[in-house]
Design a protein around this nucleic acid. Structure first.
Length: 912
DNA sequence: CCTCTGCGGAGAGGA
């Protein structure tokens, strides 16, 4: 039987005398949900749909007694934390039903917080090591890259690939990294071969027989233990861990055992019964020495007792509890000796600078208080984001397949078509979906591909190669795919944390003076005209070029931001500077890059403009500039080092490869959509920075409400008005259209760049005659009142009216491709899509940002009131209303719109 | 109450 619930009160641990002698116990008051208790005989949680329901008020409070070692986990408990006890027994006490741990119980603190196996492995060595790893990441270094290569070759061997072929191919794939490390393919091959031969020899020692039943690289997630990880290999159901290092002792290292034990727990939940683990220390090897040394083969088998598995769960509980409480580990939690630790210096510096308690001691002066306060604030905010990612994981088993599909987080009920082995030991999987099924999944995404359930079934990490009615995936292992789930990745949060750490602990002092408002940005006087027909654009380029620290370019809709950026980069390149061009989205990076390439055409060889990013992220027409990772090391590294302009998303700027690069200037576009740490990822790489954006348009997308919602751009614009320039002439909208946005969001400063822009109408378009339009649509801005169907996120009446409007425009000679429809909700987007022709662009506000259209129709999808966060953020209407060039139609319920002052003014303007 | 893009996954090792 298992018991799951929320800790209702403080927990005391005490000693009692029992018939077995002195024992420790903790009585945990637990608020248990209706289905938080499973009937006896069920050792594991129900594997049916639904899982454990949320705890509600009417739930019962009971007492769960945790015995002996589990009291260590009890000490970690605080009211409000989730607790899960497996194999509990039911007891009657004073007429009340209570529960207690048995010899077979596991106690799991905050089970929905998924701890990675690596975290547990680091933590057991020293909790501080775990923390440092999270904070500063692992830089590019050869031993780590080599280790990864050996693992890849190991996987290939298990999948039957030829050794030499595998080594060559895997080294080729890592050309760029190896080049940056100054390694040659031959030397690396020699190194890898040494380890790999040991593996191969061991495999050939008759151990790889038909019934050995191997599987390599399996991603495992445990909803019971709250652990996830990827096992190197599984042999006859037991974990095999590969180590590239040396171990001449008889026993495996303790942390390695712990790692294997984690996989054993994960396998146990997947129906296994594991009592041994194998560690493969491939540097030990030299099989020829086998006879002299007796048992010095690379493999060390060890038996995994119950005690070890439970110990691992307690370790995991320590991490979960610490992460929930937000505490910082000191290192005293562990017995590890700091003097032998590789991270001792880093540890002391971090604790010294951040004034943290640390077993290793502190080095250096603490950062100023404002910086420490900043660190703590953002650390907390980023960790909250991480928790949201963990909650996404929990939904993998808390939600039913149908719920996930409704949430667009999964494609379900796929028809498995085939699995086909590919060259290089990967597999191609194909499945078919019913037409019309939508999801957040896109080509290039990493997904959980499963034969029915992403956690409980056979499941594998796969990449979407093609996403049509037939879906094509690639994966390391074959899975008979019938379902795909969004894979919740912590990568972005990891990189945000590291970027913030680098900005504060590695950033130069001058830069920090700017970030912390201690010093005004300075500018070199530049006596040059860059753009002669737009004063503000020219001023912006002048500021960008002359900035000693930073410049801020505020670009409202249609004001030629991208062109200004391209001009600024051109001027910088002409001065011989190395420039980083970055933005949050791939789309924005490619847009800016395209404009930049135009400007640089006759300035430098455009081979020296390099786009760093994944194949699926980079726009097709920029592919020729994309830096392929694979190839000859010297060649790859030369291409990057010689690049004078490098373009990459901010997330990529946080990658190990990009962190090796240095620039004179970082230019960040769409900077108002970036969190502060996100911006830091880019500007950390350069001496000076230029941020370009518009804080009156959409803010950063974050999962949790916290300090990440304000961009660095916005903060600095407020802090240093003199460092900024606002572009004030727009080249997009008819004057009538721009009027509202100008007064409402830009103090009336936004104006048409030329009389012809101001006077733009549909009649300018070839074959269009506005006379053919109904009288109500003659004005460039129109309001169309619709009562609405009173549903929450959709409105079929609005959708129907919009279809009529499109017909009217079509009759007047407009092409479908010249019309765009914007709605606040995705549900309404798909509702409208049903009513209008396929080639009319229908999308959410968020996705329309950055583009424009001749005609824009906005569906407000609100009846009676405007409640809801989507309407409260006025920046969203600013974006919606500034997309059209020649005509704007607002469709909605006038009464609802009039209930909010801003919307009411909008209504007045539209109805004029 | 909603909007939703990134990312070589996770883990690789040094005594």
């Amino acid at each position: 039987m298992y018991v799951r619930g929320t800790v209702a009160d403080e927990v005391d641990v005490r000693s009692v005398s029992t018939s077995y002698g002195e024992s420790e116990l903790a009585e945990v008051p637990l608020r248990v949900a209706d289905d938080g208790i499973e009937p006896p005989g069920d050792a594991t949680p129900t594997l049916g749909d639904g899982g454990t329901a949320a705890i509600t008020d009417g739930d019962e409070t009971t007492t769960v007694t945790l015995w002996n070692k589990w009291t260590e986990s009890a000490e970690l408990l605080e009211p409000g934390m989730e607790l899960l006890v497996t194999n509990a027994k039911e007891e009657e006490y004073q007429g009340e039903t209570q529960y207690a741990t048995t010899g077979d119980s596991y106690v799991v603190v905050e089970p929905s917080f998924l701890v990675s196996v690596t975290s547990i492995r680091n933590w057991v060595e020293c909790p501080r090591l775990y923390y440092l790893n999270k904070l500063s990441g692992v830089p590019l270094n050869y031993p780590v890259v080599k280790g990864t290569l050996v693992h890849e070759v190991f996987g290939d061997l298990l999948r039957g690939r030829d050794l030499e072929e595998s080594i060559e191919a895997r080294i080729e794939e890592r050309g760029l990294q190896l080049g940056l490390l100054g390694e040659t393919p031959d030397a690396v091959a020699e190194d890898v071969r040494e380890n790999a031969t040991a593996i191969e020899g061991w495999l050939e020692q008759g151990r790889l027989t038909e019934d050995d039943n191997w599987r390599s690289e399996q991603l495992l997630i445990s909803e019971t233990f709250g652990i996830r990880g990827r096992a190197d290999a599984i042999r006859r159901g037991a974990p095999v861990e590969l180590k590239t290092g040396k171990n001449l002792k008889k026993e495996p290292r303790f942390k390695d055992k712990v790692q294997a034990a984690c996989y054993a727990l994960l396998l146990e939940e997947h129906g296994g019964d594991v009592d041994t683990g194998t560690l493969l220390y491939t540097k030990n090897s030299a099989l020829d020495r086998n006879e002299e040394t007796g048992d010095l083969t690379p493999a060390k088998d060890f038996s995994m007792g119950d005690g070890l598995l439970k110990y691992v769960v307690r370790l995991r509980n320590e991490i979960a509890a610490m992460e929930m409480s937000g505490d910082i580990p000191t290192g005293y939690e562990a017995d590890a000796k700091c003097e032998y630790c590789f991270e001792q210096d880093a540890c002391m510096v971090v604790s010294g600078r951040l004034d943290q308690e640390s077993k290793a001691g502190q080095i250096g002066q603490p950062l100023p208080e404002a910086e420490r306060e900043y660190f703590e604030r953002f650390y907390r905010a980023i960790e909250e984001e991480r928790h949201e990612v963990h909650r996404e994981y929990a939904k993998l088993w808390e939600q039913s397949a149908e719920e996930r599909a409704d949430d667009d987080r999964a494609l379900i009920d796929l028809e498995f078509v085939e699995k086909r082995p590919l060259e290089g030991s990967r597999w191609e999987l194909r499945a078919r979906r019913e037409g019309g099924a939508t999801s957040k999944l896109r080509e290039g995404d990493l997904v959980l591909a499963s034969d029915g359930h992403p956690v409980r079934g056979d499941s594998e990490l796969a990449r979407i190669e093609r996403l049509d009615d037939e879906i094509v995936l690639t994966a390391d292992e074959p899975v008979e795919v019938t379902r795909l789930d969004v894979y919740p990745s912590e990568l972005t949060t990891d990189r945000l944390l590291v970027a913030m750490h680098d900005a504060l602990l590695k950033g130069d002092e001058r830069r920090k003076d700017i970030l912390f408002g201690r010093s005004e940005p300075e500018f070199e006087a530049i006596d040059e005209t860059f753009i002669d027909n737009n004063e503000r654009q020219n001023e912006a380029v002048t500021k960008a070029v002359g900035a000693q620290d930073c410049a801020l370019i505020h670009g409202p809709p249609g004001t030629g931001k991208t062109y200004t950026i391209a001009q600024a980069i051109r001027a910088m390149v002409e001065r011989g500077e190395r420039v980083l061009l970055s933005a949050f989205t791939n789309r924005a990076v490619d847009n800016a890059l395209e404009a930049t390439l135009e400007q640089l055409e006759n300035v430098i060889d455009t081979d020296r403009v390099v786009r760093v990013g994944s194949e699926s992220g980079v726009r097709e027409d920029m592919e020729s500039h994309r830096l392929e990772r694979a190839g000859d090391p010297d060649d790859r590294v030369a291409k990057l080092q010689n690049a004078q302009v490098v373009a990459a998303t901010t997330a990529t700027c946080g990658s190990r490869v990009m962190k090796e690069q240095a620039f004179d200037v970082a230019l960040v576009d769409e900077a108002a959509q970036l969190t502060e740490p996100g911006t830091c990822a880019a500007i950390n790489l350069a001496e000076r920075f230029v941020l370009v954006g518009d804080h009156e348009q959409l803010p950063p997308v974050v999962r949790a409400e916290n300090d990440l919602t304000e961009s660095l751009f916005e903060r600095l614009v407020d802090l240093y008005p003199d460092a900024g320039v606002m572009l004030d002439r727009q080249y997009r909208m008819n004057q009538r259209i721009q009027a509202f946005a100008s007064t409402e969001f830009y103090d009336g400063q936004l104006r048409p760049a030329t009389p012809s822009v101001a006077g733009r109408t549909l009649d300018d378009l070839e074959g269009v005659s506005s006379e053919a339009l109904p009288a109500t649509l003659q004005d460039p801005v129109t309001f169309v009142g619709v009562e609405g169907d009173r549903s929450r996120y959709t409105d079929s009446e609005e959708a129907a009216r919009i279809a009529d409007l499109i017909e009217a425009y079509e009759a007047a000679g407009l092409e479908h491709s010249e019309i765009g429809v914007i709605a606040p909700f995705r549900a309404q987007v798909s509702e409208i899509s049903k009513h209008v022709p396929d080639d009319v662009a229908v999308d959410t506000v968020d996705r329309f940002q950055g583009s424009s259209q001749e005609v824009i129709i906005v569906s407000f999808t609100a009846t009676d009131t405007l409640e809801g966060p989507i309407f409260e953020d006025y920046r969203r209407i600013n974006v919606a209303l500034t997309r059209p060039k020649r005509a704007l139609v607002l469709v909605g319920d006038a009464q609802a719109l009039a209930s909010d002052p801003v919307y009411e003014r909008m209504l007045a303007w539209a109805r004029r």
